[in-house]
């Protein structure tokens, strides 16, 4: 059985792709083209997404029209902010491969690589900076 989290992603994905408000019925019909899913399940999950602040909705006749609160790009940017942010208090939450660095340190890195004969991105690893 799929987890509800997957269904959340499926719902958000459709609403972002369609780029317009949609009813639960439309979403259910679209998912049903790939796999069967119950109307009430989608309705429940859409309501959860609304309560989490990810979807906004307004009444249209007897049905709710759902729409993403923010674009996919905005959420991605927020995640990247977490991933690139250099505030110390985020250290325990994520572990980055390399911290966001000031320009001086980047040049010091390049100097260290040059001194070791590893010209950054040119000789040993062609395509490193392609």
């Amino acid at each position: 059985m799929r987890r509800l989290g997957d269904l959340e992603a499926e719902i958000m994905d459709r609403l972002w792709r369609w780029d317009r408000p949609a009813t639960v019925r439309e979403i259910v019909d679209d998912i049903n083209r790939i796999r069967p899913v119950a109307y009430t399940t989608v309705m429940t999950v859409a309501d959860v997404l609304h309560r989490k602040g990810l979807l906004r909705r307004e009444k249209s006749g007897r049905a709710w029209l759902y729409e993403p609160e923010r674009s996919r790009e905005e959420y991605t940017a927020a995640l990247m902010q977490d991933a690139l942010g250099n505030t110390e208090d985020r250290q325990a939450a994520l572990q980055r491969f390399v911290e966001h660095m000031p320009p001086d340190d980047v040049s010091a890195l390049a100097a260290a690589l040059r001194a070791a004969g590893q010209i950054p991105g040119s000789d040993e690893e062609p395509g490193a900076l392609s």
């Binding site: 390399v98 890195l109 690589l113 690893e125 900076l129």
Partner: peptide
């Protein structure tokens, strides 16, 4: 060399 240049490439 691979790990060191990878670090540089991501940082820069």
């Amino acid at each position: 060399g691979t790990l060191a240049t990878a670090l540089y490439v991501v940082a820069s």
